[in-house]
Structure formats: structure tokens, C-alpha cells
Design a protein around this nucleic acid. Structure first.
Length: 132
RNA sequence: UAAGCAAGCCGUUCUAUCGCUCCUGUUCACAUAGGAGAGGAAAGUCCGGGCAACACAGAGCAUCCUGCUUCCUAACGGGAAGGAUUCCGAUGCAAAUCGGGAGCCGGAAAGUGCCACAGAAAAUAAACUACCUCGAUUUAUUGGGGAAAAGGUGAAAACGUGAGGUAAGAGCUCACGGCUUAGUAUGGCGACAUGCUUCGCGGUAAACCCCAGGAGUUGAAAGACCAAAUAAACUGACGCUAAAGGCCUGCUCGGUCAAUGUCAGAGGGUAGGUCGUUAGAGCCUUAUAGCAAUGUAAGGCCUAGAUCAAUGAUAGAAAUCCUGAUUUUUCAAGAUACAGAACCCGGCUUACAGGCUUGCUUUUUUC
């Protein structure tokens, strides 16, 4: 359950291009999220985590934030994310850290819970819209 | 004993749960067991090499880099030892000796240029005050000449001191001394040192320049290989004739070509993957040569390998530091630096909480 294997990461250049060209996005401080539903692959969600070099000059800081986000995603995904993805489709997801400073793990955890709720709402609205 | 400086070394530890990357074993597979998993700077990308591709007859010019000597090294702009210069300290009347530092240490006597402000003058000399001298006169002014000693200016004023010399002066001459060129003798592998003879006496080479030595360009996004899918073109096979077309032939039949269709192939090399790529100028121990950098020999060890990029998160305990309270050992809160491998090595430079070791200097105490 609490895994984070290679297959769950978004590595393909083509998929990334597709996500940023035709995907939707919203902002929930300190994250910005891009997402796109595509046809099914081997996993329900493929995720991409980014921390901009412009805001954090030192590699140590960027690594720390990326590792925290990854850990939060790993612990929360099965509870908050997977049940809402319908079978036969995969969600491409990009999480960008836009905060200016490094926050505590607990705060980031709280924020990300809100993030999932927000994301689910948007997704449901989108699916409903398509059906009409 | 305390403080400061320099050099070297270390640079949080343990447990539990849940993960990540690689390797090995088992398994058809799903899985599962075991092992390994950031640094002294991994950083800056400043030098030097390996490796790779491309370029390259030979010679010259330009450009750039290096610049005391010898040694070490794969190589270096790095290091070691030494020389000269210079700074600090100690001893000493002084000369000097000893100890500890410092650095873009070839040439200004090949040539050219430049030297702010101030000052008379910043370099073939030059004359503001003052000095000497020859005139002119209105007798305190003016003109010519000599002179670089004195004044003041400046970062720097034609080597310093003394004597001779002179109208007054001047390395103009002499003595002693300083720096320096060339020659020579001795010592040293050499830089260089010491002596003698001799030439000369502002600075600047990070201004041009001269001398000696050296440099091909680009970097692992190098480069080598495998190779879906798709489109057009190519090749082959099959299929096809209802009509039209080219050729054999003026016509008919027949043959053939082309086109359309289906299938296959080759090519190129996109997506993606493999190698390069972690066994190396490697690490550890011992012996040995050397003042040392370092070399040699023997034995042992295998010690990160990701590719959008692993090495983490949470909880608990311990250690250290600091602040406050208490008061002389307890409690509470906080902190635990700089910083994250990306082809690999050798250096240099910069960052760094806290701790340890060694050396030197100063201070205090005791003998």
C-alpha cells in the first residue's frame, strides 16, 4: 500500500508535454497542481514533483522538500486519492512547490489533505461536464 | 593555567515502524530472503591528466599561458627541500646569529611610452627663492652667464657620508660605504654565496616590448550499439480488369509496364533501451629508500552507482553545546555547522556549529 515505485512516477517527456499543454491546474499554497486524465496504464496515478531552483538555490533544500512531498504522497495516496480514480483511466499529476520557505512536515501534511479534496471536486465537475 | 595564531584530524550515535535505489539467491511469475547505499569539502568549475570524437605533410607568423633553483609526479599554474628578497621577535655596543612568517621572485644596462596633485624641475634636463659673477643704471631695481650644493613640494628629486676642488658649485676628483653590470677564481648538481678587477646609479614590464619554455578544438548532452510505432519514397510477392492509358504494332488478340489494393522486406534511427559507468595513477597494513614531497616490495580488501535522478519520513532514547531557574547538580526550553555524488582521478580555492592533537607566541602561578 505505502509504496512509491518507478511506475508511479511521471518520467516520459511526451506525457509531461501533454500534461502541461492540455491539462488543468489550480493553486493551493504552498502547492501548484497540474492534472490530466488519460487512458489507463499500469497504475492509477503518475506523479511529478518539482521544486524550482529559482526559489531554493541549494540542492540540499530542494532535496529536503522533494523528499517530504514524496513521503506525504506515499502515505496519503491510498486513502485520499486512489478510491476516487475510476478504473480505465490514469491521472497524470504534477505538484510544484511554490512556497518561499521550507515548512514543517505537519503543516505540509495538512495542506496536502486539502489539496486532494480540491482535486477530487475539480475532477468530478470535469467528468460531469463531459457527460452533459 | 588561560588566551591568540598556524598545521593536521574528527565532524552526532542507537532502536522501532513504514518506504526508495542497486547487487546476489530462490521463483514461470506475483513475490520473498540477504547485502550495500553521499563528502571533507560531493561545492566553485580555477588548473592538470585519463578517456572519446573531430582536425592535423613540413615550416613560419599571430594569439594565449607559464616565469628563482633542484627534486617529486601520469601531469600541473600543485607539492617538497633549498636560494635570494622582505617582515616580526630574541640575543648583541655593533656586525651578525638564531627562531617564526610572507609572495604572479626572468629582463628597466635592447628600444619606445608613461609618472596625477603639488613643485622651479618628474628626466637629452630644467633656475622660483637664496648663491656666485659680468654689465646697465633712476641705488634698488633690471638684463646676461654660471651653478644643482641649501629651501620648500611630492609616493619618488640624479646613490650616502667626509675631504679635496671652485668665483660659487657639482661623482668633477679621492677615501669609505650601499645597490648593480660584465669578467674571473673558489665552494655548491643548481638558484646562489665569498673574494678580486671592471662598468654604472629614479620608478613602472598588472604599458608596449624583449628573452626562455609551452599550448590543436570540443567535452560523457563525448562517443559506440540495439531499435518499436507512424508517414512518404524504394524493393519483392500476391491480387486485379468494369472502363481508360504507355510500349511491342497501323488494327485485333495476346504479352508487358504503370496505377489502385493487400502482405512482406530493406533502409534511415524518432520514442525507448544497452554499453561507456564504477577495479581505480584505488584503499588498508607492514617493511624499506629518502631531510621531505614521494618511490619500491609483500600481504589483505572490493568500498554508492541514480538518469528527472535513490540514500528518506515519523516516534523514542542517548551525547554535546547554549540560555534560564536552582544552586553546585538537577530541572526546563532550544540548538547540533557547511553542505547532497552524476564519466573518473591529482591538486587549488572557498564554506563550516562543536570537539581533539601538535607547534609557536604572550600572560599568570609554582619550583
Amino acid at each position: 500500500m505505502y509504496t512509491f515505485k518507478k511506475e508511479e512516477r511521471l518520467c516520459s517527456q511526451k506525457l509531461i508535454d501533454e500534461l502541461f499543454h492540455s491539462g488543468s491546474s489550480f493553486l493551493l499554497y504552498p502547492y501548484r497542481v497540474n492534472y490530466l486524465l488519460v487512458n489507463s496504464m499500469e497504475v492509477p496515478v503518475k506523479v511529478l514533483i518539482q521544486v524550482p531552483k529559482r526559489k531554493f538555490k541549494r540542492a540540499v533544500d530542494r532535496n529536503l522538500i522533494k523528499r517530504r512531498i514524496r513521503e506525504i504522497y506515499r502515505l496519503q495516496k491510498s486513502q485520499h486519492l486512489y478510491p476516487f480514480i475510476s478504473e480505465g483511466s490514469t491521472l497524470l499529476l504534477s505538484i510544484v512547490y511554490v512556497g518561499k520557505e521550507i515548512h514543517d512536515f505537519s503543516l505540509m501534511e495538512e495542506k496536502s489533505k486539502k489539496l486532494w479534496l480540491n482535486l477530487m471536486k475539480d475532477l468530478q465537475a470535469q467528468i460531469g461536464g463531459n457527460a452533459e
